[in-house]
Design a protein around this nucleic acid. Structure first.
Lengths: 200, 200
DNA sequence: TGCCCCGTGGCACCCGGTGTCATTAGCCTC
DNA sequence: GAGGCTAATGACACCGGGTGCCACGGGGCA
C-alpha cells in the first residue's frame, strides 16, 4: 500500500478525514473489518497510525461518518414536528425523514450499514452510537407526554422505534432494489398498530 | 491479591468457573469493568490469565453466566406455547416466564444486569448475545406465521420485544423494590397495544 | 511401570488504543 | 525578514485484551 498524496506536517490537511474514511470503508468491505489493521488503513490513507486515532477515537468510528450530525438533525426534526399529531407518529415521521437520503448518497449508506449490521465488532459498537439516538427520542417523547425521560414509556418508544428502524435497514440491505423509506414506513406501521400482520 | 485455594494442574477443577465468575462480578462491581484487568480477575480466582481465557472467550463473557442455557430455555418455552393464542402474546409470555427468577437468584441477576446495561463495553457486547435471542424469537414467529425468519415481521417482533424487555430491565434496576415481571408485563402491554399510554 | 490425556501456566506475539515528545509548516508580530 | 506561537503530524514506548505454542504434571489405564 503506497500513500496517496501524503500531507505534509503542519499543513491544513483539508479532506484528510474523508480520505481516511474512504480507505477504511474500502478495506473493510473488501477484506472484513477484523481482518484489516488500523496500520493498514492509516497506510492506505497516507497518514500514521497515531494520526488515525486523532481523527477517529476507535477503529469502528471510521465507518460511521458524521453520525453526531445525524443525531442532531433527528433532534431538530423532532422539535419541528406538529404537536397536534400523536407523539409516536412524530417520532416515526422524524425517523423516516432523517433517513431520506439523496440517491447519490445511497451507495455509501449501503456500504456503511452493511458493515455495521454484518460485522460483529461493529454491531456491538453500534449499540453505543444508537444509545445517543435513544436519548434524543426519549427526551422528546418525555417532553411531549409530560413524563420524565427516565420513565418506562419514553424509553420504550425510543428503544422499540429504533429497533424497528434497524430491522427496516436490514430488510433494505437484503433487497438491493428496494427503497429504504418503504421498509421504514412498513416497520413503523406494524409497530404502531401492534403487529396486525400476525392476526391472519 | 493472593490466590484462594489454588487448584493443582491436572485436577478436576470442579467449580472453578463459578469461582471465576464471582471474582469477576465482585471486582467489576466494585471498581468498574474497564478498570479491572483480566490479570486481576484471574489472580483473585487463583488461576492464570491464560486459563481465564479458556473458561471465557472474552472478558465480558465472565459477566453473563450460562446465557446459552437461558436462550435454550426461551426456545423451549416458545415451542411449548399454546398455538391457539396470537404469536405475539406467546412471545411476550415466554419472555416473562424465562425471566421469572427465584427470589434467591435476584441479587445476582441485578448485579449482572446492572453491569451489562451500565458499563459501555458490556452494553456493546450485549448486542452480540441478544442477537442469539433475536434469532430464536424470529424463527419461532416465522414458523407460526408461515413466513421466513428473514422476513420483516418476524425480525421486527424479535427486535422490538427484545428492546421492550431490555427497557423493562432498566426500569427494574432503577427501582430497587419493584418486581421484574411487573415491568416486563407493562412494557409488553404498551408495545402490543401500540402505546395507548401516549394518547392522553 | 509406562503410557496417554488433559487441564494448566508461561511465554511470545498481535492488535487496538493512549501518553509523550520532537519536528515541521503556516502565520502573526515586531 | 527574523523570531515566536500554534497546530498537525509522526515516532516511540507502553498498556491491556486475546491467541498460538509448548512444556509440565497429575490422574487414569493397560
Amino acid at each position: 500500500m503506497t500513500a496517496i498524496e501524503t500531507a505534509p506536517p503542519g499543513a491544513p490537511a483539508e479532506g484528510t478525514r474523508a480520505r481516511v474514511e474512504r480507505a477504511a470503508l474500502d478495506l473493510f468491505t473488501l477484506r472484513g473489518f477484523e481482518q484489516v489493521t488500523t496500520d493498514e488503513v492509516a497506510d492506505a490513507a497516507g497518514i500514521s497510525r497515531r494520526t488515525f486515532f486523532r481523527y477517529f477515537a476507535t477503529k469502528a468510528d471510521a465507518v460511521w461518518g458524521d453520525f453526531a450530525a445525524h443525531v442532531t438533525r433527528l433532534d431538530e426534526l423532532l422539535a419541528a414536528t406538529d404537536p397536534a399529531q400523536p407523539v409516536l407518529a412524530s417520532v416515526c415521521a422524524a425517523y423516516v425523514e432523517v433517513n431520506d437520503y439523496a440517491v447519490a448518497e445511497l451507495p455509501l449508506l449501503r456500504e456503511r450499514m452493511l458493515l455495521i449490521l454484518t460485522e460483529p465488532a461493529l454491531l456491538a459498537h453500534s449499540q453505543l452510537r444508537f444509545a445517543e439516538v435513544d436519548r434524543v427520542v426519549a427526551r422528546h417523547v418525555a417532553g411531549r407526554s409530560g413524563t420524565a425521560a427516565t420513565d418506562l414509556v419514553p424509553r420504550l418508544v425510543a428503544a422499540t422505534t429504533r429497533a424497528a428502524a434497524t430491522t427496516a435497514f436490514e430488510a433494505w440491505l437484503a433487497d438491493e432494489r428496494s427503497a429504504l423509506g418503504t421498509h421504514l414506513r412498513q416497520a413503523f406501521a406494524e409497530l404502531t398498530a401492534g403487529f396486525p400482520g400476525l392476526l391472519r
